[in-house]
């Protein structure tokens, strides 16, 4: 059940953007799809929503191939940075079209959200600022009857107050509908607690997949005098380090050895998702 992505590869000319992606979105969870710019997140989402085609691999929803199937596609809504809405169309008209094509639409909720975000639905889409385009698309995403809602950088152009409002509404909506949300974002710190599962994608491959809690349980910062830290972290999967004078810190992913004696001088603490992400996806030479 759910959306299954099997061995998706995508090549643009000589550039291999996705190199064999396998993942699954089961119903009723909030997923985070994290990756740096150019990691292939948007390409993957566009393939899932049948906007572009993979070079190889399949996407299925409850076992049905998504690509040319209306009954599968109507279960998916992809909100993306790319604007597929015609510039000259009024927002109200766009909501009407959405209702016609998705089969239903929650106008009461949409009007409530529009009022909260102070978005005037009589405007034309093309007149909206980047932030309000995001807001409009978010409103559609929350009011559409699709069971799988993909949000590709939903925070684009949103100020802190609007983001706060969005997180509230997302949680409220999730509590009521228990749909699946897949969020791709760079604001990891703000989204971390919202997510139940996470995929970290790097260079077109899935680097980390799992429950956020389990992933974080394996991520540590080992800090103290350099010698002691290095001795303690020998043989562990060190993904990064930092130093401040004599104090040295090693970022470790994959768990520590409980049998190993932790010296008094060395401290061991967990990482948050953002710190883990940064250290996992740093390129050589970046700090």
């Amino acid at each position: 059940m759910g959306i299954e992505v099997k061995n998706i590869k995508k090549r643009f000319g000589k550039h291999e953007v996705l190199r064999g992606i396998n993942l699954e979105f089961v119903p009723g969870k909030i997923y985070g799809l994290l990756g740096r710019n150019g990691a292939g997140k948007s390409t993957l989402l566009n393939i899932i929503a049948a906007r572009i085609f993979p070079t190889a691999g399949t996407v299925t929803l409850d076992g049905k191939t998504v690509c040319d199937d209306d009954s599968a596609l109507e279960q998916i809504y992809l909100m993306s940075e790319r604007n597929l809405y015609p510039e000259g169309e009024r927002l109200k008209k766009l909501l009407k079209t959405t209702e016609l094509l998705y089969g239903s639409f929650d106008y009461t909720y949409a009007n409530k959200l529009a009022a909260e975000f102070s978005l005037d639905l009589n405007q034309k889409f093309g007149k909206l600022s980047t932030g309000y385009r995001s807001i409009f698309k978010l409103i559609v995403a929350l009011c559409v009857p699709a069971r799988y809602v993909f949000l590709d950088e939903p925070d684009l152009g949103l100020d802190a107050n609007h983001r706060e409002l969005f997180y509230r509404e997302l949680m409220e909506n999730y509590a009521q509908t228990h749909r699946t949300f897949i969020v791709s974002t760079h604001l990891i710190g703000e989204f971390a607690n919202l997510l139940e599962r996470v995929f970290i994608i790097k260079n077109g491959q899935i680097l980390v997949a799992g429950e956020v809690e389990d992933v974080l349980a394996k991520a540590y910062l080992i800090a103290g005098p350099k010698e002691d830290v290095c001795k303690y972290s020998a043989g562990l999967n060190v993904i990064g380090h930092e130093s401040l004078g004599n104090i040295y810190g090693n970022y470790v992913f994959g768990g520590v050895d409980d049998e190993r004696h932790l010296p008094d001088t060395v401290s061991l603490e967990h990482l948050d998702l953002q710190k883990l992400f940064i250290n996992l996806t740093n390129e050589k030479g970046e700090k």
Binding site: R168, M171, N193, E196
Partner: peptide
């Protein structure tokens, strides 16, 4: 709690 503090309800 989930809504006010932006925490996944499962958590």
């Amino acid at each position: 709690i989930s809504r006010d503090f932006h925490i996944n309800p499962a958590t």
